[in-house]
């Protein structure tokens, strides 16, 4: 399994925001669905080791995140909800910087992403300043960057927030394709239900608890619903406007 979470709890002061989460995810496209405030970003901060782990365990590719933090991080790529690109640097400079943080030379860094850049239609923009790119291209650059060190797991925290529908669908399609081609585990956090496919693995998070976990289609059958919207409504009693 690529991501294993066991009995994970976390709180801010006295307020518990994640309660005894347990799930495991393999390679392919996995969806972490939950409304705003469900605890998705907190969970991501725990999965990336940016928050000191609360109670419970996190394993990435069989490596315990506390005991083998560095080895686990080497297998992990992340796209954060808020952009972490240097707007005043060029696309190329941003990529080289990311490579250096993983101990790669400038040339190696660029060589590793040549094919991804082409696929995401960024190879002609290497010398452009990131500030000049639109939101969709910036996100694609962040995805490219996250894949540079050839991770086995990639986490994307609401990567389509603020993008128009076309860009959103294009990015999600690209990521699905990359997950298949590179045989990696993708965990895609979102609150937008139209980003799910019926064969995706789903973790439904609501108010810090997992309400459902499994393949979408099987969950529909199990809970006797027709689609994700109904499943969501049934299990969370909330309706998120898309």
């Amino acid at each position: 399994m690529s991501i294993v979470v066991r009995d994970l709890s976390y709180g801010y002061g006295n307020k518990e925001v994640l309660k005894q989460l347990s799930f495991s995810l393999g390679t392919g496209f996995n969806l972490l669905l939950g409304p705003n405030g469900a605890g998705k970003s907190t969970l991501f901060s725990l999965l990336t080791g940016l928050f000191n782990q609360g109670q419970g365990e996190v394993e990435l590719c069989g490596l315990d995140l506390v005991q083998h933090r560095r080895a686990a991080l080497a297998k992990l790529g992340v796209v954060f909800q808020q952009s972490t690109l240097d707007l005043d640097l060029s696309v190329k400079q941003n990529l080289i910087y990311q490579g250096s943080l993983h101990g790669l030379s400038a040339m190696d860094s660029l060589n590793r992403v040549t094919s991804i850049l082409e696929k995401l239609e960024l190879s002609q923009r290497l010398n452009e300043r990131v500030r000049q790119l639109n939101g969709g291209h910036r996100r694609r650059l962040e995805i490219t960057r996250a894949l540079m060190h050839r991770p086995k797991v990639i986490l994307l925290d609401e990567p389509t927030v603020g993008l128009d529908t076309d860009s959103r669908l294009l990015i999600i399609e690209h990521v699905r394709q990359l997950a298949k081609e590179m045989d990696i585990c993708v965990l895609w956090a979102t609150h937008l239900m139209d980003e799910a496919n019926f064969d995706d693995e789903l973790v439904l998070l609501d108010r810090g608890q997992i309400r459902a976990s499994g393949q979408c289609q099987q969950l529909y059958k199990k809970h006797e619903v027709n689609d994700l919207f109904e499943l969501y409504r049934k299990l969370t009693q909330q309706v998120e406007l898309i």
Binding site: T48, L50, R70, L73, A74, Q82, T84, Q98, L101, H102
Partner: peptide, 13 residues
């Protein structure tokens, strides 16, 4: 928030 997150995701010590 920001670029320090990226730095802290590096597998180097």
């Amino acid at each position: 928030m920001g670029s320090m997150k990226l730095l802290l995701m590096s597998p180097l010590p």
